[in-house]
């Protein structure tokens, strides 16, 4: 038997308009409701975003992958004990817990030109997809330019301003933080990069420069590293970062998304 299914699904005549936007238009309907296909498509995107928010940094694998840089690696943790605390207490995500502070002090490293920091932020998935390539490329270029590097710091449950807490202990001239951005439905693996000259507690976000949407389908790791090198050179020349370091390479200054503050 070959019964035709009469489910009531209707498509929209203006399907062709989808060419002009990624917005969820011309979804069609059954009755006044959204077709199941579209409902599930939405749910899958949301599931990816939620999984990314609750994803965790795999410190051991990051240490392995960053070994080729030859840099010492130090894993630290913010004062936000777990993800639910992290989400509700942004203030704690900006501070190092006590063992971490001691560990960084114990490095006794001489102040370097540049400190590289990698933090989970709101998507450890974004870090695992993008950070290793960016760090390896960046270390190579930074060295070629003659700058010294501090040990790489890996941060669990960290927010953007934890840069300042780390900066206070390692005293680099400039810090670069790679951090997982808040996942959207269209991208759950975007990484951000924040560049802070003379990081120290009490800095506000207009003192940083930011690159957003670093991922293969967005600002590719190679393009990101080129932009980062431009910012680094400019920052050392001007002895500052932030709103006064102007947008010449399409970079935004002081535009830290609220959720990453």
């Amino acid at each position: 038997m070959n019964k035709q299914k009469k489910t009531g699904l209707e498509s929209d005549e203006w399907d062709a308009l989808k060419a002009y936007t990624d917005a969820r238009i011309a979804l069609g309907k059954t009755g006044v409701s959204i077709p199941l296909r579209e409902s599930l498509r939405f749910r899958l995107a949301h599931a990816h975003a939620k999984d990314a928010v609750y994803s965790r940094l795999n410190i051991a694998s990051l240490e392995d992958d960053l070994a080729p840089t030859g840099l010492p690696i130090c894993a630290v943790h913010s004062q936000a004990e777990n993800r639910d605390t992290y989400l509700q207490r942004p203030d704690l995500g900006r501070l190092l817990d006590e063992p971490s502070a001691k560990r960084l002090q114990g490095l006794n490293s001489t102040p370097a030109d540049i400190s590289l920091i990698v933090a989970d932020g709101l998507s450890a998935t974004a870090i695992h997809k993008n950070a290793v390539l960016v760090v390896n490329l960046l270390v190579e270029q930074v060295r070629r330019a003659g700058y010294s590097l501090a040990p790489v710091v890996l941060v669990e449950q960290g927010r953007v301003a934890i840069t300042d807490a780390i900066g206070a202990l390692l005293q680099p001239r400039l810090a670069i933080l790679l951090v997982g951005e808040r996942p959207g439905l269209s991208s759950f693996d975007s990484m951000g990069a924040y560049i802070t000259y003379a990081p120290q507690p009490g800095l506000t976000d207009e003192r940083r420069n930011c690159l957003s949407n670093i991922r293969e389908q967005g600002l590719t790791p190679i393009m990101a590293v080129n932009k980062l090198m431009y910012i680094i050179e400019t920052a050392f020349r001007l002895k500052l970062t932030g709103v006064e370091l102007k947008d010449n390479g399409g970079l935004a200054a002081g535009e830290v998304p609220k959720e990453l503050e």
């Binding site: 936007t21 990624d22 917005a23 969820r24 238009i25 979804l27 309907k29 006044v32 409701s33 959204i34 579209e38 939405f42 995107a45 949301h46 808040r182 959207g184 439905l185 269209s186």
Partner: peptide
């Protein structure tokens, strides 16, 4: 559209949701 704001990156209510509520 589809409750998914592709600029502000958050989820709200859709045109379909409004029709649901009216109905």
């Amino acid at each position: 559209p589809g409750a998914d704001d592709i600029m502000l990156h958050y989820q709200s209510t859709s045109f379909h949701d409004a029709l649901y509520l009216r109905r």
